[in-house]
């Protein structure tokens, strides 16, 4: 029988993240072709009640050592390696998320297994697993072969259906006694995000701005449009990093996920990190000078144009329409 697939379940502060179900679903799909069992690994002393939610796994390994409560990559990698060896799982799935970032390379260094990052699709070819990854902000795809199904794969959030990884039947649970040395990286506390003046997750219209907006003054144009539409302004990482808008307006991997009725994207290329945060919007309208920008592949409407030329005219027209 094929060797097991081990999924590092991602839980954060007592909640199972969607990526966990996405990974379990992806693992089930691979297992469907190879007959491999699917195992999940849950870490942390508060993880016990969460095992029941991982019914898509044939078995859940649980390491409830308190030293694993804090999200420290090297400690998680230690537990993962122990269980991976015990279960003889040569194929390991990890989430391509901020929480799990770093665990993969540490495990790869310790085990010698190859690692494939940014994975968005998987297929079985004979004895090999072919992983499709997106590189260069989504502009180029790469197919990488893992011979004999051996490797560590970091799966991109939102790329695999979460529904396929949800299961009701309570899985078998195996507790793994493991002492993990207190890590050299010591977790102190969480810092809650400062609540901004506006909650962008609750808006029905969002005007998103990216690098193409060029200057802080131009952000004001987007603000004017948002006001005319009764919505709010948000931004991709480069704009936030410049300090042009507060952190509470950041959309994407490190920021918030939004799902407005309309998302207007001005000068946003649509890199995977940003797309992750806007993909559930009902209608996405993208304006970008680069006709090859990945945002046009996912948006509902697009225009190849300079955001700074469209914005002033659009503001006028919206205002005229509103009377």
């Amino acid at each position: 029988m094929a060797k097991p697939i081990l999924v590092l379940a991602e839980q954060h502060r007592g909640e199972i993240a969607d990526i966990t179900f996405e990974m379990l679903g992806a693992a089930r799909a691979v297992a469907g072709a190879t007959g491999a069992p699917v195992f999940a690994l849950l870490l942390g002393s508060d993880a016990v009640p969460l095992t029941a939610r991982l019914g898509a796994a044939d078995k859940v390994f649980l390491v409830d050592t308190p030293t694993l409560d804090a999200p420290v990559p090297s400690a998680a990698a230690t537990a993962l390696k122990t269980v991976q060896e015990q279960a003889q799982a040569d194929l390991v799935f990890i989430g391509c998320t901020n929480i799990s970032l770093g665990i993969g390379p540490i495990l790869a260094t310790r085990t010698g297994l190859p690692l494939v990052n940014f994975c968005r699709a998987l297929r079985v070819e004979g004895n090999a697993l072919v992983c499709t990854s997106q590189l260069f902000g989504g502009k180029i795809a790469a197919d990488v072969k893992l011979p004999d199904m051996r490797g560590i794969v970091c799966l991109y959030p939102g790329a695999f259906p979460a529904e396929a990884g949800r299961g009701d039947k309570p899985p078998a649970v195996e507790k793994v006694p493991l002492l993990v040395d207190p890590p050299k990286v010591i977790f102190k506390q969480y810092l809650q995000p400062e609540t901004g003046d506006v909650d962008i997750t609750k808006q029905s219209v969002l005007v998103g701005v990216g690098r193409g907006i060029q200057t802080q003054d131009n952000v004001q144009l987007a603000e004017e449009l948002a006001q005319a539409l009764g919505g709010a302004v948000c931004a991709s990482r480069p704009v936030i990093d410049q300090g042009w808008l507060p952190l509470s307006r950041q959309v994407g991997k490190s920021g918030l996920s939004v799902k407005p009725r309309v998302y207007l994207a001005f000068g946003i290329s649509g890199a995977p990190e940003h797309w992750e945060g806007i993909q559930n919007s009902q209608c996405i309208i993208a304006i970008n000078t680069d006709s090859k920008a990945p945002i046009f592949d996912g948006a509902h409407y697009g225009a190849v144009a300079d955001a700074l030329e469209v914005l002033p005219v659009l503001i006028e027209k919206v205002k005229a329409r509103k009377g």
């Binding site: 790869a108 190859p114 690692l115 494939v116 072919v130 997106q134 590189l135 989504g138 502009k139 180029i140 795809a141 790469a142 197919d143 990488v144 072969k145 893992l146 011979p147 996405i284 993208a286 990945p294 945002i295 046009f296 592949d297 996912g298 948006a299 509902h300 409407y301 697009g302 225009a303 190849v304 144009a305 300079d306 030329e309 469209v310 005219v313």
Partner: peptide, 23 residues
Amino acid sequence: RLQLERLYKPEVAGRAQMLEGTP
């Protein structure tokens, strides 16, 4: 460590309906 099979432009699942013209 990695066996790269190929690089390619991603096959696009969908494409936005393009709005053409002057600004």
